[in-house]
Design a protein around this nucleic acid. Structure first.
Lengths: 210, 210
DNA sequence: TAAGTCATGTAAAAAGTTACATGATTCT
DNA sequence: AGAATCATGTAACTTTTTACATGACTTA
């Protein structure tokens, strides 16, 4: 079973949904931490059904195309429950902005400052959006948030991760942008630095910087 | 040009390296925010050379196999500089632990608490490792850290991102684990909640929770 | 009437992981 | 003697993205 499969089961454990519905959930909500396009969702649903994790029934609609509504099976629910507490398979981080940062010493400083200021804004906007959701949940679902068996608690816990992530990311962007703007017209070193100096320890392949 | 290509160029802008050296850098250092296996690195180096971004020379070694040492070209350096300040292509977040959290309401609470406690530890260990590097950089390279044109500044800025990320992640794990442990033997709601209650707004496909 | 939503699929390409393959030297 | 390191590649597979494909109905 793939992680995408569990993402789908996680949604179906809360409500019965069509492939189209799942696509929309993967754009917002769950999409904040796991996303997929419809071209990935439809084949995955077929695989899940083949494996006995979900079943579907065709719902005929007037004025709208018919749809296949998927429901999680007892087996699917059991598998999902099991998976939740298994340690996640370690995936390497891939963050393009941090990678750019690693080469920012080569870049035009004005453009670099603009980049980090822009990214700071992006993350602050996302944070504001999350905080709206948080306020809404805390006001309208304060009871359920305290029950570990409620999906609202689970949603809330995930949301808190998003909030912490965006807050930290925005703050870091601000720090980088500030650092660049402060020193922008300050003292300069003489161009590129290549070939390590003698004070640097030899590379043992694991513990060195930069 | 792929992001992996720029990751390689970012390393080669600092020192000339063989494919094997690059593989090691991608395991630590740069690997903290962009990683690749050697099976991806060797073909990418060939593509980069084909495009005129790098050149190589064979270095014969006694007692060790000969190696190809790659050097960045003027064109490669220009391209890298340009790329650094371009806004990163938005990539969807994929975080398996947060996805698991979304379904944690279904899980055994004792096992769930153990999971988040373990993950907290993992992130605290990574944080400790980063903070060692930080202390080392601040003591041995305090001058270069203030120069925007120094690769040490760039490494330091990237490292600060890693520190913030791990600190926030560990803190969130602790919060989840604490939440579960505090209420573990508290009041229970009656099993699964399916089919949304009437107080929930209809899904407009973008702004709803959970 | 043009754009957008609802609805479901397939195909091709790119990116990334795991496995296959080889061979010398060095450390335990 | 066996495991690990140095060194470079290819092949197969999985995952993800982008593009192709269709068609009815609704809103601007």
């Amino acid at each position: 079973m793939t992680t995408l499969g569990y993402a789908i089961l996680g949604l179906l454990s809360r409500e019965d949904l069509s492939g189209y519905d799942l696509k929309r959930r993967m754009a917002g909500r769950v999409g904040y931490f796991w996303s997929a396009r419809h071209s990935q969702i439809y084949p995955e649903l077929a695989r899940l059904e083949n494996g006995g994790y979900v079943t579907h029934s065709v719902v005929e609609q007037k004025e709208r195309p018919d749809k296949k509504v998927y429901e999680i099976t007892a087996q699917g629910l059991d598998d999902l429950k099991e998976w939740v507490t298994q340690p996640p398979v370690p995936r390497p981080t891939r963050d393009e902005l941090t990678l750019k940062t690693y080469s920012v010493w080569l870049a035009d400083k004005e453009e670099a400052a603009r980049l980090f200021r822009e990214e700071q804004l992006r993350h602050e906007e996302q944070l504001a959006h999350y905080e709206e959701l948080q306020a809404w949940m805390e006001s309208r679902h304060s009871q359920e948030l305290r029950s570990l068996d409620s999906p609202w608690f689970a949603s809330y816990a995930s949301l808190r991760r998003g909030i912490g992530y965006e807050k930290e990311y925005a703050g870091w962007c601000r720090w980088v942008a500030d650092s660049i703007e402060r020193v922008e017209s300050g003292p300069h070193s003489s161009g590129r630095i290549r070939a390590h100096s003698t004070t640097e320890p030899e590379d043992d392949g694991a513990t060195q910087v930069p």
